[in-house]
Design a protein around this nucleic acid. Structure first.
Lengths: 247, 247
DNA sequence: CGGCGTTTTGAGTGCTTTCAAGACCGGTGG
DNA sequence: CCACCGGTCTTGAAAGCACTCAAAACGCCG
């Protein structure tokens, strides 16, 4: 844990408009909460800024805090006994990380970019959850969504050839942005080839080869480091779900 | 959908002991519910018996019902555009299937054995959930648990060699039983090699070869069709997480 | 300019898949 | 009773895709 600053919220913001801490009532836990609840949440939560590469929490740490991502991108990883790592998923603004029914966090959470987080102590969150059933309902919704995307990922990793996995990853990056409102032509992609490989169950070399193949076919370009522009979404998503070129 | 019979519950059972429909208050949704709630649930739910190989619901069907497995084992599968299928998971007594925040079920649910299910219409369930916050809490718990096991599965499929995946599958079969109280020496295993292969992202031949290898090493035996006895759990779980023989 | 981490590219190996054939098992009908 | 049949499982041999090992290119930062 390496916060640059952590300031307790002061009750000055207009709670009937947005959550004063997380800055939103259309994303994260605060979605669809009423004014009183938002005010309540603000009072219980802290806002913090953390730099890229810092760990929000580690696998095995006591799971006594929950975080909502306000800005930035995080990577969730599990370390295997043989030293390899599996990236369980990436998390974007609006996502909640660290909520689990286990005693300890089941994975590391590492920031890929500078980020602003909203932090809630677990006991306080539990109190809020019993006080506002709609909040628990919202959490259930988020959990279901996470479950669905993880199952999707299972299909990708389990049954698709290398290039199809990389294509599926790129399309899902775009989808993640669309789900949050905007679909910029050039996407942020702060993860390294190794990160992507560990997410897709491949080696970094194979991921690299897929990217060069896509580039040569004119399907994408990388205008600068850590950014991609998808030029032929049709082709990519076709490859991703096996609709194209095979059979 | 192919129910052998579907009988509306009659309020004769003692609701303060177990859920009259699902027959339990220590598993499924009914865990930790009070007497009034259990009685209420019983009144809203149906109990049905379905034969092996029948579909509880199909991917794409309107998700207007939720099922709790009282007895039997179910297989959840997604069909890929290229004809292959991915088994998303297996579900056991006490598990809930069909609860989703999507309009349609995201996968097929097929029974591998004869089964008894508890059926709830989605609108009725939603009413119950708002009436009994503890029930929603329980559902969140189940969802979290499912998420954790799916992530576990992701690691298995993504980063482990064939035999390790099969070993992990066998160990998880045992764990599933342990979680539900008993750990019999001989496990029911109603799934075919093809089912297991589609679950693990392998081919049925590779799964078959792994089983023969384990048998030759004396790690397991199959006393009869669709049953396994794990003779060397140590070796199997060692292989499963790469602790053994490698490095 | 030098150093370090990331990415790219190449060549060879190996594990899993693919293709194919035979064995096994339970159910059915002659 | 037994031969036949479909489905499942096993086993073998060959091919392919991704991995491993290795080295060079690139980009960033001090």
């Amino acid at each position: 844990m390496n916060p640059l600053d952590a300031t307790r919220h002061t009750h000055t913001a207009r709670a009937d408009e947005v959550c004063a801490t997380c800055g939103s009532r259309v994303a994260g836990l605060c979605k669809a909460m009423d004014a009183a609840a938002l005010d309540d949440i603000s009072g219980e939560s802290d806002r913090l800024t953390m730099p890229a590469r810092s760990l929000v929490f580690r696998e095995g740490d006591t799971a006594n805090r929950v975080f909502s991502i306000m800005s930035g991108i995080a990577k969730l990883t599990r370390l295997l006994p043989d030293g390899k790592q599996q990236v369980v998923g990436f998390r974007f603004p609006g996502d909640i990380i660290g909520y689990t029914n286990r005693q300890e966090y089941p994975f590391d959470a590492e920031l890929l970019t500078n980020a602003q987080l909203c932090r809630l102590d677990r006991p306080k969150l539990d109190k809020l959850l019993t006080r506002y059933p709609s909040m628990e309902h919202r959490l259930l919704d988020l959990c279901m969504q996470e479950l669905t995307t993880t199952q999707e990922q299972l299909v990708t990793v389990g049954r698709r050839p290398a290039e199809a996995r990389v294509a599926a990853f790129l399309v899902s990056l775009l989808d993640a942005r669309r789900l949050r409102g905007d679909a910029p032509r050039v996407l942020e992609m702060p993860m390294t080839r190794a990160d992507i490989a560990d997410f897709l169950g491949l080696t970094l070399e194979t991921v690299s080869r897929s990217f060069t193949a896509f580039r040569k076919r004119g399907w994408l370009q990388e205008p600068e480091h850590m950014k991609v522009e998808l030029l032929d979404l049709e082709a990519l998503s076709g490859l991703a779900d096996g609709t194209s070129d095979v059979d």
